[in-house]
Design a protein around this nucleic acid. Structure first.
Length: 313
DNA sequence: AGTAGCACCTGATTGC
DNA sequence: TGCAATCAGGTGCTAC
C-alpha cells in the first residue's frame, strides 16, 4: 500500500517527467475518480486544459501539482490552482513518451501533455478505486512555511489543508507532534494512522514503528510517556527513511510505479506480515489481530500494553 | 469534542 | 468445478 516512502518515489519520478509540460487533453474513463470535483469531469477537464505543470509536491500520502497559467510558467507567480491526487490503496501513475498504448483496464484517467521534448501521456491507474484526482484551489499555509516536499511555495490545496505535516517534513514541529500523539483515549496505533496528527504513516509502517519503539498498538495514547512518544516519532522516521532508500532503487523512471507489497523493503519488515514467526529481537511469536478493521501485528513479549513495568500484556 | 464505525471498491484467495 | 464469502485498507462521512 502506498505510504509516505512509496508516494515520495512516485512524486520524484513524476516530477522528473512532467514538470514544465502543458495539458493539451484530459480523458476520464471512470467518473468516480474525480468524485471530489465540484462540477464533475467536465469541470475537471476545463480547469486543467492549457495549464502548465509547475512542480510535483507531496505532504504525507497527498500529492499535488501546482498549475501555472502558460504566461506565468517558471515565474515567481504563485499558482492559485493545483491538480491534487491521492493514490488510495492501489493508485499508480504511468508516464509514456510519444504514442501511448491503449489504456489499461484499470486506467481511470489520462492526461495528454506537450513538453519541450515532445508529447507525454500520464495515466492514472487505480484497481480498487479509492484514489482520486481533483483540480482545486490552493490556500496559504498558516505558518507561511512550504506546504510540502517538492516546492517552496507556502500553499496547499484545499483537500490537504487539514492534513498535518509529515514526519519527514523539515518544518515539522516535534514538540507539537509529541503532545498530540499523547492525547486522548484511542489506542496509539489509531493515533499514528490519524493523518491530522502526523501524516504519511499507514498500516504497515505503523506496525513497524510500534515494534521498533516497543509499544503495544492498543496502549491508550494518554498512557504513552513523553520519552516513549519521542522514541516512537524517531522510529517512524527511521523506518520510513530506510524504506524510502530502498524504494528509490527499485523503480524505473519511465515506469513510475508504486509497489508497496513487493518492494525490496518488504524483506526487512520486522512485524507486518510476520504473524506466527519469531520476533527477531526476543524470539517471542509475532501475533496478528484485527484492530479497528485493520490487521495489526506485534510482539506480545516486547511490546507491553500498559508500559515497561506492567506484568500483564 | 473526541471517538467509533461504516461506506467506498475490485481482484485474489479461501471455503463449502 | 463453481460459486459465494472473505480479505486487503486510506480517507471521509455520519452517528453517538
Amino acid at each position: 500500500m502506498p505510504e509516505l516512502p512509496e508516494v515520495e518515489t512516485v512524486r520524484s519520478g513524476l516530477a522528473s517527467l512532467v514538470v514544465g509540460s502543458t495539458v493539451t487533453g484530459v480523458q476520464v474513463f471512470r467518473p468516480s475518480c474525480v468524485r471530489l470535483q465540484q462540477g464533475g469531469e467536465g469541470e475537471f477537464a476545463m480547469r486543467l486544459h492549457g495549464m502548465v505543470l509547475d512542480a510535483v509536491v507531496r505532504r504525507g500520502k497527498f500529492l499535488w501539482i501546482p498549475l501555472a497559467e502558460a504566461e506565468d510558467a517558471g515565474s515567481a507567480h504563485t499558482p492559485a490552482m493545483a491538480l491534487s491526487a491521492h493514490l488510495g490503496m492501489s493508485g499508480q501513475f504511468r508516464v509514456f513518451e510519444g504514442d501511448p498504448p491503449e489504456p489499461h483496464s484499470h486506467c481511470r484517467a489520462r492526461l495528454h501533455l506537450e513538453s519541450p521534448d515532445g508529447p507525454r501521456t500520464v495515466d492514472f491507474l487505480d484497481q480498487r478505486t479509492f484514489g482520486y484526482l481533483v483540480a482545486e484551489r490552493m490556500q496559504p499555509t498558516p505558518d507561511g512555511l512550504p506546504g510540502g516536499h517538492g516546492s517552496a511555495l507556502p500553499a496547499v490545496p484545499h483537500t490537504v489543508a487539514h492534513i498535518a505535516r509529515d514526519a519527514l517534513d523539515p518544518a515539522a514541529d516535534d514538540g507539537h507532534i509529541v503532545s498530540r500523539i499523547r492525547r486522548g483515549s484511542r489506542g496509539i496505533k489509531q493515533v499514528l494512522l490519524d493523518q491530522t496528527v502526523v501524516s504519511g504513516v499507514g498500516n504497515i509502517y505503523a506496525d513497524e514503528a510500534l515494534w521498533a519503539a516497543r509499544i503495544h498498538p492498543q496502549r491508550p495514547a494518554e498512557a504513552v510517556s513523553t520519552p516513549q512518544a519521542r522514541a516512537l516519532l524517531a522510529a517512524v522516521r527511521t523506518v520510513m527513511t530506510r524504506a524510502l532508500a530502498q524504494g528509490g532503487t527499485s523503480f524505473d523512471a519511465l515506469y513510475v510505479n508504486i509497489n508497496g507489497e513487493s518492494g525490496y523493503f518488504s524483506r526487512e519488515l520486522a512485524a507486518y506480515g510476520r504473524a506466527g514467526q519469531p520476533c527477531e529481537r526476543c524470539g517471542g511469536l509475532i501475533v496478528r489481530e484485527h484492530i479497528g478493521g485493520r490487521s495489526t501485528h506485534w510482539c506480545p513479549r516486547c511490546q507491553r500494553r500498559y508500559g515497561p513495568q506492567a506484568s500483564r500484556n
